[in-house]
């Protein structure tokens, strides 16, 4: 965050609010469409944002998803207050999850969230303090060729 962004906006996300889980990703998609970004960039960011939002809904108490627009990339950081992730390497492997049946009944919690975010972004970083919370930072380059997958 060493450069000034052209635009930034923050969106609060509430933990355990399954009924509204996905609304922030959809609102951010509308914002990205207004910016006139390529469709592929919007899709990849929206998928990453939705997975990140559902992670907050499922596991954290609350979070802020912040979108920062730069000339050549869109950066997103999701800072949550929650239990944190004890073993990030474990959580990054597909199929690894601590989800409950209620979460799985919503179509999530299969251990694909973090890998899906990484797959759809050009930069990805996750930091976590157990008992404090988790911070996700990811970015999609707006001038790059479409990423396969």
């Amino acid at each position: 965050m060493d450069r000034d962004s052209l635009y930034r906006e923050s969106f609060p996300i509430k933990g355990d609010d399954f009924e509204r889980g996905g609304e922030v990703a959809t609102r951010v998609k509308g914002l990205l469409q207004q910016l006139g970004l390529p469709r592929d960039v919007i899709r990849r960011l929206s998928i990453a944002n939705f997975e990140a939002e559902m992670n907050v809904v499922m596991y954290a108490r609350e979070a802020t998803l912040e979108v920062l627009v730069f000339p050549d990339l869109i950066r997103v950081q999701v800072v949550d207050r929650g239990p944190g992730i004890a073993d990030i390497d474990w959580a990054m492997q597909e199929g690894h999850s601590t989800a409950t049946e209620a979460m799985r009944a919503r179509g999530f919690g299969a251990g694909l969230g973090l890998p899906n975010i990484q797959r759809n972004t050009d930069e990805f970083e996750v930091k976590s303090d157990v008992g404090v919370g988790t911070t996700l930072r990811y970015a999609v380059h707006t001038t790059s060729r479409p990423k396969e997958g």
Binding site: F18, G21, G22, E23, K29, R39, R43, I47, M54, F108
Partner: peptide, 17 residues
């Protein structure tokens, strides 16, 4: 094609175009 009736089914379709 899905059997999931929650709002996440619609949000998924929306974000994934």
């Amino acid at each position: 094609v899905t059997g999931l009736a929650s709002s996440q089914m619609v949000h998924t379709a929306e974000v994934a175009d």
